[in-house]
């Protein structure tokens, strides 16, 4: 319930800003996206249909980045120097490359290097996932390191294997501490997915750009775009918060 109240508040604030701006005498032309005209409806539908790609892109990227992030975090916790160095090199490198630069390289460079074709969608997924995984590796490492040494020793002394120790003892406890920063990361990733518009993937931002070119109404169209991201991210944040609460409740 709280979720919806927050959401509604966000929406009202958004609309209020819009109305205020209109009232400020700017020359608005809401007809381009007006639900009451045939062309307005089709424009609106065109814009909103970009949600599919934005959401699919973010979900694929977050899932892959979580897997890679975990695989990179674990060697960072090892005793040996070699696995720790590997972890550092990966994290430092991919944290340093701007997402847009990585995206361009994956889309235009990688196909040449590997002699393969890659669609804009998968180039976007790969670039976002890799960039994000470097941050997530650090989040996971911190979360796992925050679990007390006694837990690890207890798990060792009842003879659990490394996998079982992680799966049943460490990660279930670490996840509670990992979830909040991971939620932030998910929101960040959703926003960064707009960059994939530059290589032509027809997601929210790309569609807005295309419509602006044909309709010459940047103010209205980009306002819709802002609202689209706002709503999407409010929903995601509420979801993350709900999950955190549920986990806290499970603990007791």
């Amino acid at each position: 319930m709280v979720v919806w109240m927050k959401l509604t508040k966000g929406l009202i604030a958004g609309l209020l800003i819009t109305v205020l701006l209109t009232g400020c005498g700017a020359n608005w032309g809401w007809y381009v996206v007006s639900p009451s005209t045939e062309s307005g409806r089709s424009n609106l539908k065109f814009l909103i249909d970009g949600l599919g790609y934005t959401i699919a892109l973010s979900i694929c990227a977050i899932v892959i980045s979580i897997v890679i992030g975990l695989l990179i975090a674990l060697p960072g916790l090892a005793k040996g120097r070699a696995p720790r160095t590997m972890n550092r090199v990966y994290v430092e490198c991919f944290r340093a490359i701007p997402i847009l630069v990585l995206l361009l390289w994956v889309y235009y460079g990688l196909p040449v290097v590997l002699d393969i074709g890659i669609t804009a969608f998968w180039a976007g997924v790969v670039a976002l996932a890799i960039s994000d995984s470097a941050f997530e590796a650090e989040i996971f490492r911190g979360g796992i390191q925050s679990i007390s040494k006694g837990q690890i020793e207890a798990a060792d002394s009842i003879g659990l294997s490394y996998y079982d120790k992680m799966r049943y003892v460490i990660l279930p406890q670490a996840i509670r501490r990992i979830l909040p920063p991971l939620g932030n990361q998910l929101v960040y990733m959703l926003k960064m997915s707009s960059l994939v518009s530059v290589i032509g993937l027809s997601e929210l931002t790309r569609r807005a750009n295309e419509l602006v070119v044909t309709e010459y109404r940047p103010l209205e169209i980009y306002t819709i775009l802002v609202l689209e991201y706002l709503i999407l991210i409010l929903i995601v944040s509420a979801g993350v918060r709900w999950l955190e609460k549920k986990m806290r409740a499970d603990e007791q």
Binding site: Q151, E153, A154
Partner: peptide, 8 residues
């Protein structure tokens, strides 16, 4: 162990 170390 002294600190029990049960899995919370």
């Amino acid at each position: 162990f002294q600190q029990f170390n049960l899995f919370p």
